[in-house]
């Protein structure tokens, strides 16, 4: 493993066509749960193989068994259900989850596939959960009168899942809060909830956040109780580098630095990636700077995702060589 600039991804990978078809067939009742699960395992093996082949340092299971980061857990959690269709953009709709009762942990939700993926590789596989704030913020609420109580109940449920991953030996646990960047006024609540999830875990904890006006919430957002902030930086023109350079970044924290724009079909050049990494290095030394794409890769095609990761690795190797981190 390199002595710095460790590489990873945010979590999701594009689903292969055969899996997408199988998911539709399963939804229509034409495929059994076990037949679908077999294809999910096949796709997970392929995602692990791709990450090994590209040369990433910290892997993910690719979320082949999740449709959507909120709906997947909402289907399983006690006190949640899948609601009616709501438009997301253009002609795309999704079933928005609804809180219908007291939220509770139903037993392991992500452990099985994490374990399956970890058994396929010597490299660490991240456990990836959706954060309590985002789970609630992106769902309807038909039940709770008190929003804080709802978010904290969700935090307690997600904590039990995190503890399971921790006990099973996950070295990294990522608890994503993409909803937070649009509602930074709720930061205190999100921090309180996150502290319930991450308290006392042995694993290194990470939170992924989408692009937002972090300057206005500086330095308070750095109180989110995780060791690593995984930020969407390429898409924001690396303006976070300026913020952290001017006002500092805590010495006991790490950054995962997005150098690949996941919203764009165009594949970056290695030099663009290298330039993005150098921006990150102006903030943090390579031991505390992880390199990854801006966000989950599931919206890209399989070819685009693979091409983007290979270019990312090329850019990383270029900078590692410059710094003598790698021969």
């Amino acid at each position: 493993m390199s002595r710095g600039l460790l590489t990873t991804t945010v979590g999701s990978f594009p689903k292969p066509d055969y899996l997408q078809r199988a998911r539709n067939q399963y939804a229509a009742g034409r495929l059994s749960r076990e037949e679908l699960a077999e294809l999910e395992r096949r796709a997970t093996r392929e995602v692990i193989a791709l990450q090994e082949d590209v040369g990433l340092d910290i892997l993910v299971d690719g979320e082949m068994y999740r449709g959507d980061m909120v709906a997947y857990f909402a289907e399983l959690l006690e006190g949640m259900a899948i609601g009616g269709l709501v438009r997301s953009y253009g002609n795309r709709y999704y079933h928005k989850p609804v809180v219908t009762g007291t939220i509770g942990w139903p037993g392991p939700m992500s452990l099985e596939m994490w374990r399956f993926a970890q058994n396929l590789t010597q490299k660490p596989v991240k456990g990836i959960l959706t954060g309590p704030y985002t789970m609630v913020e992106w769902s309807f609420n038909d039940y709770y009168d008190d929003r804080r109580e709802m978010i904290l109940d969700m935090a307690r449920a997600m904590r039990q899942e995190a503890v399971e991953l921790d006990r099973a030996g996950a070295r990294y646990i990522q608890i994503d809060e993409p909803a937070l960047s649009t509602r930074l006024e709720d930061l205190d609540l999100a921090i309180e909830a996150m502290s319930i999830v991450t308290r006392g875990l042995r694993a290194r904890t990470i939170s992924h956040m989408c692009y937002g006006d972090f300057a206005s919430a500086y330095p308070r957002f750095l109180d989110l109780p995780v060791q690593q902030f995984d930020m969407e930086t390429a898409n924001g023109g690396y303006d976070l580098a300026d913020l952290f350079k001017a006002r500092g970044f805590p010495e006991d924290r790490e950054l995962a630095w997005g150098v690949i724009d996941v919203h764009n079909h165009l594949v970056e050049t290695p030099e663009q990636v290298a330039a993005g990494i150098r921006k990150g290095l102006e903030v943090l030394p390579p031991e505390r700077l992880y390199i990854d794409p801006d966000c989950g890769l599931k919206t890209r095609t399989a070819e685009e995702a693979a091409a983007k990761l290979r270019v990312m690795m090329e850019g990383v190797r270029r900078v590692r060589k410059e710094m003598g981190l790698e021969q």
């Binding site: 709501v86 438009r87 997301s88 953009y89 253009g90 928005k96 992106w138 909803a179 649009t182 509602r183 919203h263 764009n264």
Partner: peptide, 29 residues
């Protein structure tokens, strides 16, 4: 298709670009 595109795309001088979150909703335009 959204509350910006439909009105602006028929104006001279406007092109329509990529998806962006609409305020603090989980909807994009």
């Amino acid at each position: 298709e959204d509350e910006q595109t439909y009105l602006t795309r028929k104006l001279a001088g406007v092109s329509i670009d990529g998806l962006t979150r609409w305020f603090d909703t989980n909807m994009y335009y």
